[in-house]
Computed example of a mutant assay.
Amino acid sequence: MASHRRPKQPSRARISVLTAAAATAVALSAQTAAHADPKLTVKQAKSEVDADRRDAAAATEKYNNAKEQQQALQHKVSLLQDEIARQQAVVNQELEGLGQVASSQYAEGAIDPTVQLMLSSDPQGYLQRAVAQDQVTQAQADQLAQLVEQQQLLQREKQEAAGVLAAEQKLLDQMRGIKNSAQAKLRHAQSVLAQLSPAQRAQAGAGYNYGTVKAQGTGSVKDINLSGISAAAQTAMQAAMSKVGVAPYSYGASGPNAFDCSGLVMWAYAQAGVSLPHSSYALESVGTAVPSLADAKVGDIIVNENGGHVGLYAGNGMLLNAPEYGYTVSIQPLSYFGRIVAIRRI
């Protein structure tokens, strides 16, 4: 029968030791937790959130640029596939005719050297030998050489298409990585803001996740002078101005109700019938170059932040732009941004 003895009670000294050990463990645990998740000040939280949002916005433009390249590769693949199909049809038609001749000659017990050539595993070598031995006429040799050339061209086109497809897949993988990076930055910003009270969150996040707050230093659309610029620039500026303080920044968005920085520029000029790429990096080479900011006119495209940001010049050293996550389309001093890398006029 199993024993049901009452467990032995620990001594008073043992209880004291265990109690002290437990207290120490709790204290250490509390210290570790405090070290792992320190209380942030509003200033520290704002600094972290702003950095995360800037990084996420820069990643968005890298994503947009990779997407532009991927779409160009898709177009190239489509053209190559069309050409491959056309070339394959030509080769198939000639080979079909050759097969019919071979079948007919085989039934008669003799195959013409020309047909032997095309049925050879090495038609180019056979052709050279056949011409040297006067087994085929020069006209036949020219016709067969043309077919061999078509087959070689078809093979090169297939190899090129395979290479383009591989490059496209690489870009797709890169795009996924960039997008994941941007989303990770935003999740971190959210986690930082979640540690604060609602009042502190509003102060540190400036409307984060709502997009209803104008950026600091926002100017007024009333200060923008549209005289002396092209009709396209006027139309683009009027379109962009209508979104100031209204449309929020949003990942990969190109209007009409939300934008990222290059999406705003693309959408604004689309209202004037001008097609532009959805990428701050690609916008560095559109239109014509403007030598310096002193030569810039309202409506010119200004790329800064090492190519990672873009907006429309609003005059008086101001930039009309979709700044970053948490803000609406705004007009800000260019001094808020990094070095200008390109000024382009449409």
Rank of each mutant, 00 (worst) to 15 (best):
G326L: 00
G311R: 05
Q138V: 15
S103E: 15
Q150H: 08
A51I: 04
G177I: 07
V49L: 03
A36W: 07
E160W: 02
S330M: 01
Y208P: 09
E61L: 01
A204E: 03
L312G: 06
A194E: 05
N209S: 12
H4L: 09
E108V: 08
A270W: 02
T24G: 13
E168G: 11
V115N: 03
A166Y: 00
I178N: 03
K43Y: 10
L98E: 14
S242A: 08
N180C: 00
L40S: 08
I84R: 04
K158C: 04
A322Q: 01
Q31I: 15
K179H: 06
T212F: 02
A240N: 08
I346Q: 12
G326Y: 00
V26T: 14
S191K: 04
D134Y: 11
E168Q: 10
A145E: 12
M118A: 05
A182N: 11
A161N: 09
T328I: 01
S285Q: 11
M118Y: 06
A130V: 02
V274E: 02
T41V: 03
I343G: 01
A189V: 01
G315Y: 10
Y325D: 00
L127T: 11
A102T: 13
Q128G: 11
G207Q: 07
R86T: 15
D55V: 08
K76G: 10
A184S: 15
A89K: 12
V77W: 00
I229S: 07
R14V: 15
Y126Q: 13
I340C: 06
S227E: 12
L18V: 15
M318F: 07
E160S: 14
E160R: 04
G207A: 03
A89W: 09
V148C: 01
R5N: 14
